[in-house]
Design a protein around this nucleic acid. Structure first.
Lengths: 199, 199
DNA sequence: ACCACAATTCATCGCATGGTGAAAAACGCG
DNA sequence: CGCGTTTTTCACCATGCGATGAATTGTGGT
């Protein structure tokens, strides 16, 4: 594969890059995009701010580099679809919880979620997550009026994520995943297959 | 009542104050606290930035002045309590919707909600709204384990408010209030009086 | 007309931010 | 060693921010 002599990555100390990425992830996760300064990230990484800009470009570039998700969330939802609409609410919920409890995904997701209220994140959620991730699941499940039902699902999932992981409202934040599924599962299920007004 | 000669408010043009307040409300509602600059507010009001600081003090002072709610939200919830737990979910929902549809409250509430993810707003919601507004309602309703049930209610209400008024996810954003109540009422009701895990 | 006081503007200060380009230090290889 | 590349730092720039205090304008009361 490596045609030419492959001379990249010579010296033995480019883990600084990783340090910067880690610091960026932590900062973005805790304070969101707008309230995070490149300088603070550099300080956390013990590095000159210019170096940050040297490795990753602008602050936006750093943001997407730091918050890039290792896996496509849609893959994880495949299992939900396979078994049809019965119990799909509970299964979806388990997928979301397992994703958020994955240590590799936690910080990137927090970073994205923290920035959900400024314009870019707003569009990402409204024009990206709901129509590109959630809606297809509804279609694949074969439920009626997915364009109505999936936003309803989103409204509860967003509320849950927000209270559990961002605001850390007790006792939701420290509730075992099984209890969360037991409480919210029926809600999601009702939004998926229950009655709708003016149908 | 006015003991001394009452010499206040001499000239006939202090509606500039009101203009500043209106501009502040609009800006805060659209961009939140952090992303709003005093200068932009002054520009909107057609006024020098220093004047803003002259009337209202610091930016934080302006924020609380602009977002002061004309009424105590708890008053509006009184009617919900009176009739007991039956149908309380639907009644609570109607109260929240009527509050958010009140033109006088809309901008202040949006301003508060937009700032819900930075530390101050986070505390306001987690340590203020839930324990000081929602929890007492649960206690007054006489339901069991209100410290668990009311946060559940909060998680759905927050998700609904967010998708309907902040993110404006369709079709939730343009759904008639009656339909909203029909969809979410049973959910809230189940959180109030339905089964709980490990009880 | 004059004066006191409120309303408003001007000119700045100090600070933090994102970004840039050139210089310097560290390092591997021949 | 000494060269070339990479890594890292230094010294800046332009901008936008919140805030301050002095000056200016406007207005009403007497």
């Amino acid at each position: 594969m490596t045609g030419p002599p492959r001379r990249g990555r010579r010296p033995g100390a480019p883990d600084t890059r990783a340090a910067i990425l880690a610091a960026a992830r932590a900062r973005f996760a805790e304070h969101g995009f707008a309230s995070t300064s490149v300088r603070s990230i550099a300080a956390d990484a013990g590095v000159d701010p210019a170096l940050v800009h040297h490795y990753f470009g602008t602050k936006d570039d750093l943001f997407v580099a730091a918050l890039e998700l290792p896996v496509d969330p849609r893959e994880r939802l495949a299992g939900v679809i396979a078994e049809g609409p019965d119990g799909a609410g509970e299964r979806m919920l388990r997928v979301f919880l397992s994703v958020w409890d994955d240590p590799d995904l936690r910080l990137p997701l927090l970073g994205l979620a923290r920035s959900v209220l400024d314009p870019s994140g707003q569009r990402l959620l409204r024009d990206g997550f709901v129509p590109a991730v959630l809606h297809p699941v509804g279609v694949a499940l074969g439920i009626d009026r997915p364009e109505v039902r999936m936003p309803l699902v989103a409204s509860q999932v967003i509320g849950l994520i927000l209270t559990r992981y961002l605001l850390e409202v007790e006792p939701i934040a420290s509730m075992p995943a099984d209890d969360v599924v037991a409480v919210y599962g029926p809600t999601i299920q009702r939004y998926l297959t229950g009655p709708l007004p003016s149908a």
